[in-house]
Amino acid sequence: MLLKKPLLQVWLCGAAFACLPGASFAERAERIYSDAQLHYVNFVQETDGMEALFKAMDEARIQDVAIMGLGVAKKWEESAPREPRYYMGDEAPVYYYSATDALLAEAIQTLPGQQRERLHPFIAGFNPTDMNAVRHVELMLEMYPDLWKGIGEILTRHDDLTALTKGETPRANHPALDAVYELAAERSLPVILHSNLTSKREREPIYRQELKEALAAHPQTRFIWAHAGTSAEIHRYQGKIKNLDTIVGELLAAHDNLYIDLSWTVLEPYLLEEGVPTPRWLALVEQYPDRFMIGTDLVGRFGNLGKNIQGFDRFLDALPQEVADKVARTNLLALLPEHD
Protein backbone atom coordinates (compact mmCIF):
# COMPACT_ATOMS: atom_id res chain seq x y z
CA MET A 1 0.00 0.00 0.00
CA LEU A 2 1.35 3.43 -0.95
CA LEU A 3 1.88 5.96 1.83
CA LYS A 4 0.28 9.34 1.43
CA LYS A 5 2.89 12.01 0.73
CA PRO A 6 2.73 13.96 4.05
CA LEU A 7 2.99 10.74 6.07
CA LEU A 8 5.85 9.53 3.89
CA GLN A 9 7.72 12.79 4.46
CA VAL A 10 7.36 12.49 8.23
CA TRP A 11 8.55 8.87 8.13
CA LEU A 12 11.60 9.77 6.06
CA CYS A 13 12.55 12.60 8.41
CA GLY A 14 12.74 10.22 11.37
CA ALA A 15 15.00 10.93 14.31
CA ALA A 16 17.47 12.89 12.21
CA PHE A 17 14.99 15.79 11.88
CA ALA A 18 16.21 16.37 8.33
CA CYS A 19 12.96 18.04 7.33
CA LEU A 20 12.68 20.35 10.30
CA PRO A 21 13.51 24.07 9.77
CA GLY A 22 15.81 24.31 12.82
CA ALA A 23 19.57 24.33 13.23
CA SER A 24 21.94 22.59 10.84
CA PHE A 25 24.71 20.40 12.17
CA ALA A 26 27.20 23.22 11.56
CA GLU A 27 25.03 25.68 13.47
CA ARG A 28 24.69 23.25 16.36
CA ALA A 29 28.48 22.85 16.51
CA GLU A 30 28.81 26.62 16.91
CA ARG A 31 25.95 27.08 19.38
CA ILE A 32 26.81 29.15 22.44
CA TYR A 33 24.81 28.54 25.61
CA SER A 34 23.80 30.30 28.79
CA ASP A 35 23.13 28.09 31.80
CA ALA A 36 20.08 29.49 33.59
CA GLN A 37 20.59 27.53 36.83
CA LEU A 38 23.81 26.14 38.28
CA HIS A 39 24.67 25.63 41.97
CA TYR A 40 28.28 26.31 42.93
CA VAL A 41 28.05 23.94 45.91
CA ASN A 42 26.27 20.69 46.67
CA PHE A 43 24.08 19.75 49.63
CA VAL A 44 27.06 19.56 51.98
CA GLN A 45 28.34 22.90 50.66
CA GLU A 46 31.28 21.38 48.76
CA THR A 47 32.36 22.25 45.21
CA ASP A 48 34.74 21.25 42.43
CA GLY A 49 35.84 24.88 42.41
CA MET A 50 36.13 27.67 39.90
CA GLU A 51 38.95 26.17 37.86
CA ALA A 52 36.91 23.04 37.19
CA LEU A 53 33.81 25.12 36.47
CA PHE A 54 35.45 27.28 33.81
CA LYS A 55 37.13 24.28 32.20
CA ALA A 56 33.74 22.61 31.90
CA MET A 57 32.09 25.81 30.66
CA ASP A 58 34.70 26.31 27.95
CA GLU A 59 34.47 22.70 26.78
CA ALA A 60 30.66 22.95 26.63
CA ARG A 61 30.60 26.39 24.92
CA ILE A 62 28.72 27.89 27.87
CA GLN A 63 29.52 31.59 27.91
CA ASP A 64 27.29 32.73 30.80
CA VAL A 65 25.93 31.11 33.95
CA ALA A 66 23.30 32.11 36.49
CA ILE A 67 25.17 30.73 39.47
CA MET A 68 24.02 30.33 43.07
CA GLY A 69 24.81 28.45 46.22
CA LEU A 70 22.36 26.10 47.92
CA GLY A 71 20.17 27.59 50.60
CA VAL A 72 20.07 24.35 52.60
CA ALA A 73 22.69 21.94 53.95
CA LYS A 74 22.34 18.27 54.79
CA LYS A 75 22.97 17.29 58.42
CA TRP A 76 25.44 14.47 59.13
CA GLU A 77 23.93 12.69 62.09
CA GLU A 78 26.05 10.82 64.63
CA SER A 79 24.20 7.57 63.94
CA ALA A 80 24.83 7.65 60.18
CA PRO A 81 27.32 5.01 58.98
CA ARG A 82 28.78 7.44 56.45
CA GLU A 83 28.59 11.11 55.53
CA PRO A 84 25.60 11.82 53.24
CA ARG A 85 26.39 13.38 49.87
CA TYR A 86 22.84 14.25 48.79
CA TYR A 87 19.74 15.42 50.59
CA MET A 88 18.05 12.04 50.01
CA GLY A 89 21.10 10.06 51.08
CA ASP A 90 19.47 9.14 54.39
CA GLU A 91 16.68 10.26 56.72
CA ALA A 92 18.65 13.09 58.37
CA PRO A 93 17.15 16.59 57.97
CA VAL A 94 18.43 19.58 56.05
CA TYR A 95 18.62 23.08 57.47
CA TYR A 96 18.90 26.60 56.06
CA TYR A 97 22.49 27.69 55.47
CA SER A 98 23.13 31.38 54.89
CA ALA A 99 26.92 31.12 54.48
CA THR A 100 26.37 29.65 51.02
CA ASP A 101 26.14 33.18 49.58
CA ALA A 102 29.42 34.29 51.14
CA LEU A 103 31.17 31.14 49.87
CA LEU A 104 30.07 31.99 46.34
CA ALA A 105 30.81 35.71 46.59
CA GLU A 106 34.31 35.17 47.97
CA ALA A 107 35.12 32.65 45.24
CA ILE A 108 33.95 35.02 42.51
CA GLN A 109 35.95 37.94 43.88
CA THR A 110 39.21 36.02 43.40
CA LEU A 111 38.59 35.68 39.65
CA PRO A 112 40.02 37.88 36.89
CA GLY A 113 37.58 40.31 35.30
CA GLN A 114 36.93 38.33 32.12
CA GLN A 115 35.84 35.30 34.10
CA ARG A 116 33.77 37.31 36.59
CA GLU A 117 31.77 38.79 33.72
CA ARG A 118 30.61 35.30 32.72
CA LEU A 119 29.12 34.54 36.15
CA HIS A 120 25.83 36.06 37.27
CA PRO A 121 25.42 35.27 40.98
CA PHE A 122 22.06 34.90 42.73
CA ILE A 123 21.37 35.22 46.48
CA ALA A 124 20.01 31.94 47.86
CA GLY A 125 20.97 31.62 51.52
CA PHE A 126 17.82 32.54 53.42
CA ASN A 127 14.85 30.84 55.04
CA PRO A 128 11.79 31.56 52.84
CA THR A 129 9.48 31.22 55.86
CA ASP A 130 11.37 33.77 57.99
CA MET A 131 9.65 37.17 58.13
CA ASN A 132 13.18 38.63 58.35
CA ALA A 133 14.33 36.87 55.16
CA VAL A 134 14.65 40.13 53.26
CA ARG A 135 17.27 41.34 55.75
CA HIS A 136 19.67 38.67 54.58
CA VAL A 137 19.16 39.74 50.97
CA GLU A 138 19.78 43.36 51.92
CA LEU A 139 22.90 42.37 53.87
CA MET A 140 24.37 40.51 50.89
CA LEU A 141 23.66 43.49 48.63
CA GLU A 142 25.49 45.74 51.09
CA MET A 143 28.43 43.41 51.72
CA TYR A 144 29.03 42.67 48.03
CA PRO A 145 27.78 45.71 46.10
CA ASP A 146 27.47 45.42 42.30
CA LEU A 147 27.93 41.65 42.47
CA TRP A 148 24.47 40.11 42.61
CA LYS A 149 22.31 39.67 39.50
CA GLY A 150 19.32 37.87 40.96
CA ILE A 151 17.68 36.10 43.90
CA GLY A 152 17.20 32.36 44.23
CA GLU A 153 16.84 29.51 43.77
CA ILE A 154 14.16 29.98 46.43
CA LEU A 155 13.17 26.48 47.51
CA THR A 156 9.46 26.21 48.25
CA ARG A 157 7.33 23.12 47.42
CA HIS A 158 9.94 20.44 46.64
CA ASP A 159 8.55 17.02 47.69
CA ASP A 160 11.15 15.13 49.77
CA LEU A 161 13.42 18.15 50.21
CA THR A 162 10.52 20.04 51.79
CA ALA A 163 9.76 17.06 54.02
CA LEU A 164 13.37 16.91 55.24
CA THR A 165 13.73 20.65 55.86
CA LYS A 166 13.44 21.69 59.49
CA GLY A 167 10.70 24.18 60.33
CA GLU A 168 7.65 25.57 58.61
CA THR A 169 6.65 24.48 55.11
CA PRO A 170 7.73 27.09 52.53
CA ARG A 171 5.41 28.12 49.72
CA ALA A 172 5.53 30.59 46.84
CA ASN A 173 2.94 32.90 48.40
CA HIS A 174 4.34 32.84 51.95
CA PRO A 175 4.12 36.31 53.57
CA ALA A 176 7.84 36.18 54.36
CA LEU A 177 8.60 36.34 50.64
CA ASP A 178 6.54 39.45 49.90
CA ALA A 179 9.33 41.78 50.98
CA VAL A 180 11.89 39.70 49.07
CA TYR A 181 9.83 39.93 45.89
CA GLU A 182 9.34 43.67 46.36
CA LEU A 183 13.07 44.23 46.83
CA ALA A 184 13.74 42.17 43.73
CA ALA A 185 11.45 44.44 41.71
CA GLU A 186 13.09 47.59 43.11
CA ARG A 187 16.58 46.35 42.21
CA SER A 188 15.56 44.75 38.86
CA LEU A 189 16.73 41.37 40.12
CA PRO A 190 15.02 38.29 38.63
CA VAL A 191 13.86 35.64 41.09
CA ILE A 192 14.40 31.91 40.48
CA LEU A 193 11.58 30.14 42.30
CA HIS A 194 11.21 26.39 42.82
CA SER A 195 7.54 25.64 43.37
CA ASN A 196 6.29 22.18 42.44
CA LEU A 197 2.88 22.02 40.85
CA THR A 198 1.86 19.05 42.95
CA SER A 199 3.00 16.38 45.39
CA LYS A 200 4.28 12.91 44.62
CA ARG A 201 0.88 11.33 45.15
CA GLU A 202 -1.59 13.95 43.87
CA ARG A 203 -2.16 14.14 40.12
CA GLU A 204 -4.00 17.45 40.24
CA PRO A 205 -1.84 20.63 40.39
CA ILE A 206 -2.66 21.26 44.05
CA TYR A 207 0.02 23.94 44.54
CA ARG A 208 -0.64 25.94 41.37
CA GLN A 209 -2.70 28.55 43.23
CA GLU A 210 0.25 29.43 45.47
CA LEU A 211 2.32 30.32 42.43
CA LYS A 212 -0.53 32.23 40.79
CA GLU A 213 -1.04 34.35 43.90
CA ALA A 214 2.65 35.24 44.07
CA LEU A 215 2.72 36.21 40.39
CA ALA A 216 -0.44 38.31 40.67
CA ALA A 217 0.61 40.08 43.88
CA HIS A 218 4.02 41.08 42.47
CA PRO A 219 3.54 41.98 38.80
CA GLN A 220 6.77 44.01 38.68
CA THR A 221 8.88 41.07 39.87
CA ARG A 222 10.26 38.84 37.13
CA PHE A 223 9.96 35.19 38.17
CA ILE A 224 11.93 32.34 36.62
CA TRP A 225 9.96 29.20 37.45
CA ALA A 226 12.47 26.40 38.05
CA HIS A 227 11.70 23.20 36.15
CA ALA A 228 8.19 24.45 35.30
CA GLY A 229 6.94 22.94 38.56
CA THR A 230 8.27 19.43 37.94
CA SER A 231 10.67 17.22 39.88
CA ALA A 232 12.34 13.84 39.54
CA GLU A 233 10.32 12.48 42.44
CA ILE A 234 7.01 13.47 40.87
CA HIS A 235 8.06 11.63 37.72
CA ARG A 236 9.16 8.59 39.74
CA TYR A 237 5.69 8.26 41.23
CA GLN A 238 3.47 9.59 38.44
CA GLY A 239 5.41 9.29 35.19
CA LYS A 240 4.64 12.88 34.20
CA ILE A 241 2.35 15.77 35.08
CA LYS A 242 -0.74 15.63 32.90
CA ASN A 243 -1.16 18.52 30.43
CA LEU A 244 1.88 20.39 31.75
CA ASP A 245 2.23 22.34 28.50
CA THR A 246 -1.37 23.57 28.83
CA ILE A 247 -0.82 24.62 32.44
CA VAL A 248 2.39 26.47 31.55
CA GLY A 249 0.73 28.14 28.57
CA GLU A 250 -2.17 29.39 30.68
CA LEU A 251 0.19 30.82 33.29
CA LEU A 252 2.31 32.55 30.65
CA ALA A 253 -0.79 34.07 29.06
CA ALA A 254 -2.04 35.37 32.40
CA HIS A 255 1.26 36.66 33.84
CA ASP A 256 3.71 38.71 31.80
CA ASN A 257 6.24 38.48 34.64
CA LEU A 258 6.65 34.70 34.38
CA TYR A 259 9.58 32.96 32.66
CA ILE A 260 10.31 29.25 32.48
CA ASP A 261 13.55 27.43 33.30
CA LEU A 262 13.52 24.23 31.24
CA SER A 263 16.21 22.51 33.26
CA TRP A 264 16.69 18.78 33.29
CA THR A 265 13.40 17.46 34.74
CA VAL A 266 11.49 19.15 31.91
CA LEU A 267 13.66 17.69 29.15
CA GLU A 268 12.28 14.17 29.54
CA PRO A 269 9.43 13.29 29.30
CA TYR A 270 8.08 16.68 28.16
CA LEU A 271 10.32 18.42 25.61
CA LEU A 272 11.45 15.06 24.29
CA GLU A 273 9.54 11.79 24.15
CA GLU A 274 11.80 8.84 23.36
CA GLY A 275 14.32 11.34 22.02
CA VAL A 276 11.89 13.08 19.65
CA PRO A 277 10.85 16.73 20.17
CA THR A 278 7.25 17.06 21.32
CA PRO A 279 5.14 19.13 18.88
CA ARG A 280 3.00 20.72 21.61
CA TRP A 281 6.07 21.95 23.48
CA LEU A 282 7.68 23.21 20.28
CA ALA A 283 4.52 25.18 19.54
CA LEU A 284 4.41 26.60 23.07
CA VAL A 285 8.01 27.80 22.97
CA GLU A 286 7.46 29.35 19.53
CA GLN A 287 4.37 31.11 20.88
CA TYR A 288 6.41 32.62 23.74
CA PRO A 289 9.94 32.76 22.32
CA ASP A 290 11.24 35.26 24.91
CA ARG A 291 10.00 33.40 27.98
CA PHE A 292 11.97 30.12 28.06
CA MET A 293 15.57 29.27 28.95
CA ILE A 294 17.63 26.16 29.66
CA GLY A 295 19.76 25.18 32.66
CA THR A 296 21.74 22.23 33.97
CA ASP A 297 20.85 22.52 37.70
CA LEU A 298 24.13 20.81 38.61
CA VAL A 299 25.11 20.99 42.27
CA GLY A 300 28.78 21.55 43.02
CA ARG A 301 30.12 18.96 40.56
CA PHE A 302 30.70 20.08 36.98
CA GLY A 303 31.91 17.00 35.08
CA ASN A 304 28.55 16.55 33.31
CA LEU A 305 28.04 20.20 32.40
CA GLY A 306 28.53 19.71 28.66
CA LYS A 307 26.45 16.52 28.51
CA ASN A 308 23.57 18.16 30.37
CA ILE A 309 23.43 21.42 28.41
CA GLN A 310 23.86 19.69 25.04
CA GLY A 311 21.08 17.29 25.96
CA PHE A 312 18.73 20.09 24.85
CA ASP A 313 20.14 20.15 21.31
CA ARG A 314 17.54 17.85 19.79
CA PHE A 315 14.76 20.11 21.03
CA LEU A 316 16.59 23.32 20.10
CA ASP A 317 17.39 21.97 16.63
CA ALA A 318 13.67 21.52 15.96
CA LEU A 319 12.96 25.21 16.67
CA PRO A 320 13.46 28.08 14.23
CA GLN A 321 17.07 29.23 14.55
CA GLU A 322 16.18 32.64 16.02
CA VAL A 323 13.99 31.06 18.70
CA ALA A 324 16.61 28.42 19.50
CA ASP A 325 19.25 31.12 20.02
CA LYS A 326 16.97 32.93 22.44
CA VAL A 327 16.19 29.83 24.47
CA ALA A 328 19.77 28.59 24.48
CA ARG A 329 21.42 31.89 25.34
CA THR A 330 19.91 35.36 25.20
CA ASN A 331 16.63 35.04 27.11
CA LEU A 332 18.50 34.63 30.39
CA LEU A 333 20.79 37.56 29.65
CA ALA A 334 17.83 39.81 28.84
CA LEU A 335 16.47 39.31 32.36
CA LEU A 336 19.64 40.27 34.19
CA PRO A 337 20.19 43.81 35.46
CA GLU A 338 22.43 45.91 33.26
CA HIS A 339 26.13 45.91 33.99
CA ASP A 340 27.50 49.08 35.54
Rank of each mutant, 00 (worst) to 15 (best):
L197A: 08
L155G: 05
I241K: 04
A232W: 11
P269C: 13
K166C: 13
R203G: 02
P205I: 06
R187N: 04
A254M: 12
R203L: 05
E268V: 12
I206H: 03
P205G: 07
D256I: 01
R187S: 06
L164W: 10
T169Y: 05
A179Y: 02
T156D: 03
Y259M: 02
P219D: 11
H158D: 05
E186Q: 13
H227F: 14
V266I: 15
L215D: 12
L164I: 08
K242M: 12
A232E: 10
F223P: 07
L258Q: 07
E202R: 01
V248A: 02
K200T: 08
H174A: 05
G229I: 12
S199F: 00
S195N: 15
S199Y: 01
L155T: 15
Y207L: 12
V180W: 04
L164T: 08
E210T: 06
T162H: 03
W225D: 11
G167V: 07
V266W: 09
I234G: 07
P219S: 09
A228Q: 06
L262D: 00
E186F: 00
E213K: 07
K166W: 11
R201H: 06
A228F: 03
E168F: 01
F223H: 06
A176T: 06
A217T: 13
R236W: 03
Q209G: 03
H194L: 13
S231Y: 10
T156R: 02
L251W: 02
L211I: 11
E202N: 03
L215R: 08
N173Y: 00
E153H: 03
D261F: 00
L211N: 11
D160W: 01
D160G: 01
V191I: 14
Q220D: 14
Q238M: 10
S231T: 15
P175Q: 07
V180E: 08
P190H: 08
A254P: 07
R201T: 14
S263R: 01
A226G: 15
S231W: 09
Y181S: 10
L189Y: 13
R208L: 15
S199I: 01
L155R: 00
K240S: 15
I154L: 01
Q238R: 08
S195W: 05
Q220V: 01
E213I: 06
E202D: 09
Q220H: 11
E182G: 01
I241F: 06
T165Q: 09
A253T: 14
L183T: 04
D245N: 07
